[in-house]
Design a protein around this nucleic acid. Sequence first.
RNA 1: GCGCCAGUAGCUCAGUCGGAUAGAGCGCCGGUCUACGAAACCGGAGGUCACAGGUUCGAAUCCUGUCUGGCGCACCA
Length: 551
Amino acid sequence: MTDLLHQIRSAIAAAATAVVGAPPPVIPLAAPASAEMGDLASPVAMALAKAAKRPPRDIAEAIATALRDDPGTAAWLARVEVAGPGFLNMTLTPSWFAASAARLAAEGGSYGSGTAARPEDVLLEFVSANPTGPLHVGHARQAAYGDSLARILAFAGHTVTREYYTNDFGRQMRLFGASVAARYAGLFGVERPVPEGGYNGDYVVAIAEAVREEVGDALMPAAAEPTGAVIDDLTERGERLMLASIADTLARFRVGFDAWFSERTLHDGGRVREGIATLQAAGDAYEAEGAVWFRASAYGDEKDRVLVRGDGDTTYLASDVAYHLDKAGRGHDRLIDVLGADHHGYIARLRAVLEAGGHDPATLEVTIIQLVSLLERGEAKKMSKRAGTVVTLSDLIDDIGVDAARFFLVHRSHETPLDLDLDLAREQSQENPVYYVQYAHARVCSILAQVSGTPVASGPPAELDPAERALVMALADWPVAIAEAEERRAPHRVAAYLIDLAKAFHAFYHRCRVVGEPDDVAAFRIDLCRATAATVKTGLDLLGVEAPDRM
RNA sequence: GCGCCAGUAGCUCAGUCGGAUAGAGCGCCGGUCUACGAAACCGGAGGUCACAGGUUCGAAUCCUGUCUGGCGCACCA
């Protein structure tokens, strides 16, 4: 793993140790307040001031002197001075910049990978929408988030398994099946009402048509009402077709899963009853008021939760007990559930389930994705499943494209509700940040296409342009951004980084020519271009966005 | 009432293990194509970081309280 700043941190740490007697826990490095102050700044002296009981400026001066006296720093340190309340402002040498660019160019797409402090085996569950209808924009955000997170975790060095949990059981599924049955009958001229609370969308008609494709009129009973077995058959076919449609849409969105876990298999295999029995045996479940309750309040949840209802049906939570105990038993180091904001009340009870099941609840991490609302003509677009006015993921892809949709949905923190202005996304799609980043990639590729061979430099460039310095420092930030994205489960950090990198590159492009420059300069700039191209491409890949050579 | 998330430029939002003069994109104003792609660049206007206290050399960031908005608080999923 290449870390351009490691050598610099080490030297500062050594100097600081010599000055105050003990090494600081971390060496903070950041861009100075303005470019004239140098390439790098460190407030380390301020952090040490209290423990050392010395004024921060004194400490900073002593560290600066130690750095200047250290013969090992000559290769990279051109100048160091103390400014403000005790900042160390450093200017780096052309040879450091040239060597850094060469290292990054050589490393290419693997630069920034493997930053995870402790690689883990992660099971990431996301989307998991009921197969009773198409994915909507809320699912789209979860899909974009979960898929990008999976890519980022893997890039950082973790092992990731992506899983989709299918709620293919219970009341909603029965209503869906009955809705399909009604539409199916309708295709043969027999008008049957969609059941109360059922699914009215046009997609149900499409599903019914697909069923007709498969079986013709074989499921049209002679009797006035279909039998239970016929309904079951229609339900199963409808669910399978719906799930296939969801998978197709996700694939179109460049989102893939390693496993599709069926809730029904938990019931069919007796696992749900088993889970309840396990809790009962351990005294974590009890019967009261005609129902079976999970003693969630004993594990930090605010109240106990029903597992088996008075009518004998199990609840959604009962399935989740079996599912999460199953997941916990598979030996992963970490379980991550990506849930919509309307499920945040579930966190406490899911942890409670794990703890009651004898697992460490800390292995479960629940990431909540805030809601998406669509704006159109400046107003919130009202969506109703019942009225069939839902904007689906498929609609969104058709409307603004996969690249724009994925970048847009993930470039803001998942903890913030997202307003997606459809007019803006459509009419100003050329102004979307994703095009800004993609354009940087196309532009740098265009330069590299005109470069034949690599000139041999006799040494670093004599002078550096501020834009060259800024571009190298932007590239140096990549491992920091990826580490932050990984640790905070925050793909938007990658998007924000890419915008910064693209900005640094565009500025470089306008100030510095690559083709036709003297060898020493050209060699350095070609390295810079190669490093930029590789890093932009890697970053876009992690977001599931294409990095075109030409636009 | 309780819980989670949020409140930063006209709009959408970064920045939140405390660091110098708070940033970006869009929008607005003004410049830049006879040299590698102008989907770009450069400059400008625009801010009581919701409010009030507190912690400290230093707070958008940490603590307490208040206000506002979204979402939850089922024997629905």
